[in-house]
């Protein structure tokens, strides 16, 4: 009998194995999501840990990114005599790309590893088994709540980092220039269109979903022992970050196909 696994290189085999496993895991997530008994309280609790607890980190990053981007772009624009375009350039790049992706990466690091490690250690210390014995579906209680929470919270975090990033860029622009807040905002939004906002917000939902799914998958499939927990936290971050970039690329392609980039 022909066996496909014999001719595939080991790296490719493990990659396909992992991809398939994550796909099955995602399928199970959707099955569990629409079955009754929704763990609303646990989801709120996860929203608190994922959303509120990540807020300071995300906002600090957005602040720094907004300011650095402004300060860095200024000399280039000045050399073209286009200094007045600074708000537009920074706002477009922040809203379209930088704020969503940086937020997602920070969250992949913080939340992805957090979920990976938490579920991993729960798995290792049999807490997940204990939950199942206590009449609780761990997929619903642990996975669905966390994935829903990341899917809902990361867009909010990204929107907040949009705002803080633009504000920081206003401060950055005023280090060497003099521009009022209202003028800055008017300028900044001169070249931001609905076609920039919708894909940018849409992709943050996908980022959140990917971070949640990957973190949970890695945690639930953690190997025994403390080393296994560390490994699942680590690989959750790596895979989630990679997923963020892949999704970013796909969304750009799709929005391009639909002619939403102008």
């Amino acid at each position: 009998m022909f066996k496909i696994e014999l001719i595939l290189p080991r790296v490719l085999k493990s990659f396909l194995d992992e991809t398939g496993a994550i796909a099955i895991f995602t399928g199970r997530f959707f099955r569990e999501l629409f079955r009754p008994r929704f763990e609303f309280n646990e989801m709120l609790r996860q929203c608190y840990f994922i959303g509120v607890k990540s807020l300071p980190l995300v906002l600090a990053t957005a602040f720094i990114m907004g300011m650095v981007l402004t300060i860095q772009s200024r000399p280039t624009l000045v050399s073209f005599g286009a200094e007045s375009r600074l708000p537009q350039m920074v706002a477009v790049s922040l809203i379209r790309e930088i704020a969503p992706v940086i937020t997602a990466l920070i969250c992949a690091g913080k939340i992805g590893s957090g979920i990976g490690a938490e579920l991993g250690s729960m798995k290792v210390t049999e807490q997940i088994d204990a939950m199942e014995v206590s009449g609780t579906n761990p997929y619903k209680y642990l996975v669905v709540t966390r994935v829903v929470a990341t899917t809902l919270m990361i867009p909010l975090l990204a929107l907040m980092s949009d705002a803080v990033g633009v504000w920081a860029s206003y401060l950055g622009a005023n280090i060497k220039g003099d521009m009022s807040w209202s003028l800055y905002i008017t300028r900044a939004f001169e070249y931001v269109f609905f076609a920039d906002i919708y894909p940018a917000v849409f992709k943050t939902f996908l980022f959140g979903f990917a971070i949640g799914i990957v973190g949970c998958y890695k945690g639930m499939n953690s190997q025994k022992g403390t080393e296994g927990v560390g490994q699942s936290a680590n690989s959750a971050v790596v895979v989630a970050s990679l997923m963020v970039f892949i999704i970013d690329l796909l969304v750009v392609q799709i929005t391009d196909v639909f002619g939403m980039i102008n």
Binding site: C47, Y48, V52, L156, L159, M160, D162, F193, I197, V201
Partner: peptide, 20 residues
């Protein structure tokens, strides 16, 4: 706190849409 986060995030979204 979660509710506050949701409100502020949604407000930012609405303000952005309004500005555009």
């Amino acid at each position: 706190k979660v509710g506050f986060l949701v409100l502020v995030g949604t407000a930012i979204f609405v303000i952005t849409l309004y500005l555009i």
